[in-house]
Structures are given as structure tokens and as C-alpha cells.
């Protein structure tokens, strides 16, 4: 069913010191879908996300979040647009001097006028959503990587944003925790109906979660594939896409081979 796009990216171009990362990229994200931005390392996935959440201004092009052009709008509109989104950063970005509870409470205290005890309960609810209700008073440094990711997710969801940006939510986690996070993302998407933009290169997550994806590629700096993950996996003719989904090495001729006497020959 065609839904109105919540995010639209139009002709986006970005370079760092003459080093072009993204070249004339356009796509849109529909309401309620889990949208994946995939691609190899250095293909500009995270850069694209940084443009989409307004952390950096693109060299050319526009990013619309629910009809607000965040690349070119008044400060107030920009702030309103920011209130609609929640971001889980790659390294969780929890504030180290605050407990997990305080981290989650931070936006709630700032943007609502609920009483303190109510906020404390809300924080527990948010944390129980990610299974961390017993860690309210722990400092981020006392938690494991997966827990920090989950706490970061709870903070990103604190204000019930309509759009969630997740930068590599399951990277660096064990398969079970990663699957837990995937399941969590899926249930949040289903129950809250929030749109999700996920930057990832985890094949499992892409296939399990993604409704639609775009694949970025390093050499062309453009979108090489767009569509449903399962379809792309089975049908795409693009060699890059096939390699990505079948997890094949790009530089096969450089692979290490083993000599007959057990020594490694390059």
C-alpha cells in the first residue's frame, strides 16, 4: 500500500575535503516501514545518516522530515523536526557521568512537565521495554556493550519519536543479543508504528527486519540497489549486490592460500 513518505532525500551530495562520499542520492522512506541503509564499510552509510538527522549539512540537496526541509529551514522548525526523531548512535553515546535512568530521563525532564516520581516510573517502563529495568542506577561504564545499546535505544525512544534512526544497532554484539535487539526493533515497530531507518551491514538483520533497503556502494558513491531485501537477494543481477548477500570476498585473487607444507602463501 502506498503511504506518504515521512523522509525524503533529494539529490544529496556530500564531500569531505574534496573526497566525495555521496553523489546525488535520492530516495524516500514511507511511514511505518523499517528502512535499511546498507553497504560495505566506507560506502557512506553513516555519513548519509548524519545528513538525515541534521548533524551535518550536505553540500547540495535536501532532506525533508515530514515536509520540513531540515537542510534549509528556520531554527524553530529544525528543533521541531528534531523532536520527531530519536537516534541510537553507533557507540550508544550515553552520557558517562549520568546513570542509565538519568540518561533516559534527560529528554523527558526537558520536554514534558510530568512530576519527578512519574518520570521515574516512566523511565523504568522505558527500560523494561529493553529489559534493563534493574539497571536504572548503573553508570554506562558498568554495563556491557549490548546493554549500552539497549539503554541507548531506550533513550532514543524516550519521547516516543515517530522516526527512529539506528546506527548499526547490532554491530559488535553476540548473535543472541543481536537477535534480541532485532526482535526488540521489530516489536517496537509493530506496537508503536514508528518509522525506522537502520544503518547496518549485518546480513541477518537486513533479511529479518528490513521492509525495504537501499544499498550504497563505495566506488560509484550512489545507490546501487533499492527494494525488498529478500527480493534483492534472490533476483538482483548486480554483481555487487550478489556479493553482498552471499558474503563473498571482493578481492578473491588476493586471498590467502595455503601451501602444501602448511606455510601461508600470499
Amino acid at each position: 500500500m502506498p503511504k506518504s513518505p515521512v523522509i525524503q532525500v533529494k539529490n544529496l551530495t556530500k564531500s569531505y575535503n574534496d573526497d566525495r562520499i555521496l553523489d546525488n542520492i535520492s530516495f524516500s522512506v514511507a511511514r511505518g516501514e523499517i528502512f535499511m541503509i546498507v553497504g560495505g564499510s566506507g560506502s557512506g552509510k553513516s555519513t548519509l545518516m548524519r545528513q538525515m538527522i541534521g548533524l551535518e549539512a550536505p553540500d547540495r540537496g535536501h532532506v525533508y522530515i515530514e515536509d520540513t526541509d531540515i537542510t534549509n529551514c528556520a531554527d524553530r522548525d529544525f528543533r521541531n523536526a528534531l523532536n520527531k526523531i530519536g537516534v541510537l548512535f553507533q557507540s550508544s553515546a550515553l552520557i558517562g557521568s549520568m546513570t542509565i535512568g538519568e540518561n533516559v530521563a534527560l529528554p523527558i525532564m526537558e520536554f514534558t512537565d510530568l512530576p519527578k516520581t512519574t518520570i521515574a516510573n516512566l523511565v523504568r517502563m522505558k527500560l523494561s521495554l529493553v529489559g534493563l529495568e534493574c539497571y536504572v542506577d548503573h553508570l554506562p561504564s558498568e554495563l556491557s556493550g549490548g546493554m549500552r545499546k539497549r539503554a541507548g535505544l531506550a533513550r532514543a525512544m524516550a519521547m516516543n519519536p515517530r522516526i527512529l534512526f539506528l546506527d548499526e544497532p547490532s554491530a559488535g554484539l553476540d548473535p543472541i543479543t543481536a537477535a534480541d535487539i532485532d526482535e526488540l526493533i521489530m516489536s517496537i515497530n509493530r506496537s508503536l508504528g514508528s518509522t525506522m531507518v537502520i544503518v547496518t551491514h549485518e546480513l541477518e538483520s537486513i533479511l529479518n527486519l528490513g521492509h525495504r533497503l537501499i544499498m550504497l556502494e563505495k566506488s560509484s558513491k550512489q545507490i546501487v540497489a533499492e527494494g525488498a531485501p529478500a527480493e534483492l537477494k534472490s533476483k538482483s543481477a548486480d554483481p555487487m549486490v550478489r556479493k553482498f548477500f552471499s558474503r563473498r570476498a571482493n578481492r578473491e585473487h588476493e586471498q590467502i592460500s595455503e601451501g602444501s607444507d602448511g606455510t601461508v602463501i600470499f
Binding site: T99, E102, M125
Partner: peptide, 22 residues
Amino acid sequence: KKTLSLVNFDFNERCSVTFGHR
């Protein structure tokens, strides 16, 4: 119903402690 189930209506005692530094 699922949203409501998030709130555990019985854990008041455990919950109402305001968080903060230990």
C-alpha cells in the same frame, strides 16, 4: 493491551523510589 501491559500495576513500592545517585 500490550501498551498497558508495560505498566506493571503492582510494582509501586519497587518503582516509586526516585532514581538518582545511589
